[in-house]
Write a protein that binds this DNA or RNA. Structure first.
Lengths: 264, 264
DNA sequence: TGATGAATTCACTCAGATAATCACAAACAA
DNA sequence: TTGTTTGTGATTATCTGAGTGAATTCATCA
C-alpha cells in the first residue's frame, strides 16, 4: 500500500481536528523526519517555505511541535502518543467548558406539552447509537430489537443488552440466519429470531435503503433506522407513547407475527 | 451572574469543536427551549430565519438535534449528555484514524545525530504537562522539581510523582512556604524545600514572567517553564545530555545551593 | 568590514467559505 | 379570495486562509 494515501488521511483528520492545511501538512511532515528545517519541511510538504514558520509557530503554541531557536531554526514533532494525549486534553477541556456554559444558561420555559403523536428524526450513527443506548437503559419490561446489519452489533451495544437481559425480556431479530447465530452467541440470554422484515427491505430497493435497527421498548417507545448503503449514513425516526401512530403500527406488526418468526 | 456570558462561551466552544456560527447559535438556542420552530429559534438566536433550516440540517446530520417533520417543522436538542457523548465518539474516531494513518506513513531517515547542545522550546500547558509526565516516567535515579505556581500541582502530576517516589529520589521545591506545605501533604515521601529562585522571578519582572516549573531528571534532562500571568500561557524549554549547557548551569545552581535551601 | 546568499518576517493578492439579505413558491388561516 | 407563515433557492457581502513576492535580518566568507 502506498503511504501517500495515509498521509492524505492524516492531513484530513488533523484539519477536522481544527488545524489549518499548512499546519496539518507541516505536522505530518515533521512526523516523517526526526528533525527538520523550514527548507526541508517545505520540500517534503509542498508548503511554501515562507509559510512554514507561521504554521509551525501555531503548532508550537499548541504543544504539538518543538522548536530549536537556533539559526536556522529546527523543528521536530512531539511523539505521537504525546500529541494525541495533548489533543485529548484539549478536547476534554472544551467539553468541560461546554457543559459548564450550557448548564448555566437559563432555560426558556414555554407552555408546550409534548404531543403523543410526535415523530422525531435524527441522523448519524453515533447519535443514533447513543439514543439506542439510552432507550435500552430506560427499559422496564421488554426490549424488542431487529438488526438489519451486523456492523451495528458493536461491543458497547452487546454490553448494554447483556446488562439488561437479567431485568427485562430481550427479543432480538436478525436479518439473516447467520447474523442470528452471532446474536445468540453475543447475547445468550436473549430470545432470538429471524426477522420478518425482508419485505420492508424489498419495498425500498428503489431508494436503495437497508433496515438498520428497529427497537421497540416496553411497547411504548420505538426507534427505526435505515442505512444508505452507498455512504453508510444512518437515519432514524423514533417516537413514544401508546397513542403514537408509529407505535401502534409496530405493535400490530408484532402481534401479527410479521416482525418475528422461528423464534426460540 | 448574567447568563449571556455563558451563552457566548457555549457558542465559542462549539465553534472550536467544529460547528459554524449559525449552527452553534442554533444548538445553544435549542438547549434553552424544550422544542422550537424555525421562527422561534431565529428570534432567540438572531440567526436569520431562512438560515435556521440549513444550520439545523447540519446539526441533525451530526446527531445533535432532532427534527419533527411536521408543518411547521419542530426542532429540539438532544439531551446534553447524549450530545457530549456523540462529540466524544466523533473525537475518538478521529484520533483513531489519525494514529492509524500516521503509523502507516513512512519515515524519512536522515543522517542526523542529535547534538548534545540542543535546546528545544514548546508552549501550551497541556503539551508541557505531557512532556513533564514522560520525563518523570523515564527517571532512573533522581527527580528535582521546583514549582512556581500551585495551579500546576494537578492531580495527575501528584499521582505521577507518588508513583515514582518509591523508586527514585524526589526533591520538590516550592516557591512559597505555603505551597511547600501543600506539596508535603500531596507527596509525603518526597523531600521538600523552599525554592531559591525568587531572584529569577525578580529579574524577569520587567517582562512580567513567572517561573512555572523546573524539572531536572537524573541530572541529565531538564525542563524549565515560565507562565505569562496575563494570559496564563505556559512556555517551556528543555534539553538533555550531560554536556548540555542548560544542564550544566542547573547542576551548578543546584550544587551551590541556589536551587534549594531549608530542605528537610 | 563588507559582500553574498540563505533564513525569516512582513505585506499583499486571490479564491473559497461563510455570513447575511432578498426573492419567491408552497402551505396555511382568516 | 387575501394575507400570513413556512420553507427553498439565488444573490451579495464579508471574512478567512492559501498562495506569492518584497523587505529585512542573519550567517558566512572573503
Amino acid at each position: 500500500m502506498s503511504t501517500g494515501d495515509s498521509q492524505e488521511d492524516a492531513i484530513d483528520v488533523l484539519q477536522q481536528l481544527g488545524l489549518k492545511e499548512y499546519e496539518a501538512k507541516c505536522f505530518v511532515g515533521l512526523t516523517r523526519v526526526s528533525t527538520g528545517t523550514a527548507k526541508q519541511l517545505s520540500e517534503i510538504t509542498d508548503v511554501p517555505r515562507t509559510r512554514v514558520y507561521d504554521a509551525v509557530r501555531v503548532l508550537e503554541a499548541q504543544g504539538l511541535v518543538e522548536v530549536q531557536h537556533s539559526s536556522p531554526q529546527r523543528f521536530r514533532a512531539v511523539p505521537l502518543v504525546e500529541a494525541t494525549e495533548t489533543l485529548r486534553a484539549q478536547y476534554q477541556n472544551r467539553i468541560d467548558r461546554l457543559t459548564n456554559a450550557l448548564e448555566r444558561t437559563d432555560r426558556i420555559d414555554s407552555d408546550e406539552q409534548g404531543s403523543v403523536q410526535e415523530v422525531w428524526a435524527m441522523s448519524g450513527t453515533e447519535g443514533i447509537a447513543n439514543r439506542t443506548h439510552k432507550l435500552i437503559d430506560d427499559a422496564d419490561d421488554e426490549i424488542v430489537l431487529v438488526l438489519g446489519d451486523d456492523s451495528l452489533l458493536t461491543d458497547r451495544f452487546v454490553d448494554d443488552l447483556n446488562a439488561r437481559a437479567e431485568d427485562v425480556d430481550v427479543l432480538i431479530g436478525a436479518a439473516t440466519e447467520s447474523l442470528r447465530q452471532q446474536v445468540r452467541a453475543a447475547v445468550p440470554s436473549a430470545t432470538t429470531f429471524v426477522s420478518g422484515l425482508e419485505w420492508l427491505r424489498g419495498e425500498n430497493t428503489a431508494e436503495n435503503l437497508a433496515i438498520g435497527r428497529l427497537l421497540l421498548v416496553d411497547r411504548s417507545s420505538i426507534l427505526v433506522s435505515t442505512i444508505v448503503p452507498a455512504t453508510g449514513e444512518e437515519h432514524a425516526i423514533f417516537g413514544s407513547g401508546f397513542q403514537n401512530g408509529l407505535i401502534v403500527i409496530s405493535r400490530r406488526l408484532l402481534s401479527q407475527g410479521l416482525l418475528g418468526r422461528d423464534s426460540e
